[in-house]
Design a protein around this nucleic acid. Sequence first.
DNA 1: TCGATTTTTGTACCATTTCGCAATTAATCC
DNA 2: GGATTAATTGCGAAATGGTACAAAAATCGA
Lengths: 221, 221
Amino acid sequence: MVQKSKPPAAAKEPQRRGEPKRRGRPRAYEPEIALGKALDLFRKQGFAATSLDDLSAATGMNRPSLYGAFGDKRELYIKSYQRYREDARASMVEIFRQEMPVRQRLERIYAAALNIYLSGETGPRGCFTVVTAASEAVGDPEIRAMVLEGLTDLDKAFASCFRRAKEKGELPDSADPAVLAQLASATIHTIAIRSRARVPRKELEEIVKGAIDVMVGAKSS
Amino acid sequence: MVQKSKPPAAAKEPQRRGEPKRRGRPRAYEPEIALGKALDLFRKQGFAATSLDDLSAATGMNRPSLYGAFGDKRELYIKSYQRYREDARASMVEIFRQEMPVRQRLERIYAAALNIYLSGETGPRGCFTVVTAASEAVGDPEIRAMVLEGLTDLDKAFASCFRRAKEKGELPDSADPAVLAQLASATIHTIAIRSRARVPRKELEEIVKGAIDVMVGAKSS
DNA sequence: TCGATTTTTGTACCATTTCGCAATTAATCC
DNA sequence: GGATTAATTGCGAAATGGTACAAAAATCGA
């Protein structure tokens, strides 16, 4: 059992704007921050290896509060995964939207991915989808659906990226956006896996560079 | 607690040749088969989610026997992973050795990989390295070393494959075997992940076909 | 043939951990 | 003070990893 010994001086919660005003005893935690901590733990240890006590310690909430706020362990896991996907999506969507050369766009996308995979105090944490969600996917249809959606979303984003590049004449007519997109996704997946095995950032960047060269043609070498 | 109700009529063990003759009570199990069952379970559920009772039920050995034969849970996991890698290696090594065109060699390698990833009664099981070992890799140096070795072995095998192809004139001079090898590995990784999410074989084969086309040049389309 | 020896099996057990929840107490608003 | 919401304590049933110990099944030696 993990309990905090923090004096009950309730952390002043910055009165959320928009919300009318909470009635009873104020929360001693911020749901968004707590969910972030839970996400970090699940990402590091996976579902089964992460106990509610671990989560309790990491979030600073005790188990009943956790339960009340997020539901049981599986629900918390799913909410964490949703949060992860929102974050990842947010960090990429701008790069996909803005106008720029394909090569630059790809470079930025992979840089963003590496930042996600390599961040974390206690060693690189990899990709939630690849490292833990894919494991749970066999047995849990809901998680599997999320994984599948994540995979196809990435494929689609890359495909439209290559389609635009082709229209702009950056790629030869023979280029097949769908095939290139799957290669681009595969490159994401391979760096996700390798980052988990603590392959140094330098090597991952080499892999990315090589893959980009193959996809959009080597840079005036 | 899971116990078998099998009558104690000890399964006649096919007197192993070579081994001088075991002294005490004969084993009621075959270590190789039991290890295979353990491997299947770990592959399906991962390390933490697989209990000793699960393993006991799957192997038909009770826990003390399991412990005596393979050591504790972690040791059994590592032995399972070693077994997996030997099996995977065995299914590929011939394909890498024999003389044949690159394209055909790649097609066969990926077919072998898909057979590994998609076999299993209760849904596709994916790749041990990608699905569970990579997860454990962050926290366990020994497992991490095995994962790293597996990754680089694959890279090397593909690299030498492309090097030979280049020497035989099957690839343009501009082709970089190391870069192509990493793409080939990435393709392995992406189908490993997707197979876990139950992407149908047909789609995985499409991905493989597209990747091969990019790596060795599209087949006279 | 028969007991000693060796090795494995089967049963039971232990200490911990795990998830979940009920009951109580605390803080805030009305 | 009453209502409302949350925190805290602590329980409990089940599962978990690991082990002690005796019974069982084989070989070996005399």
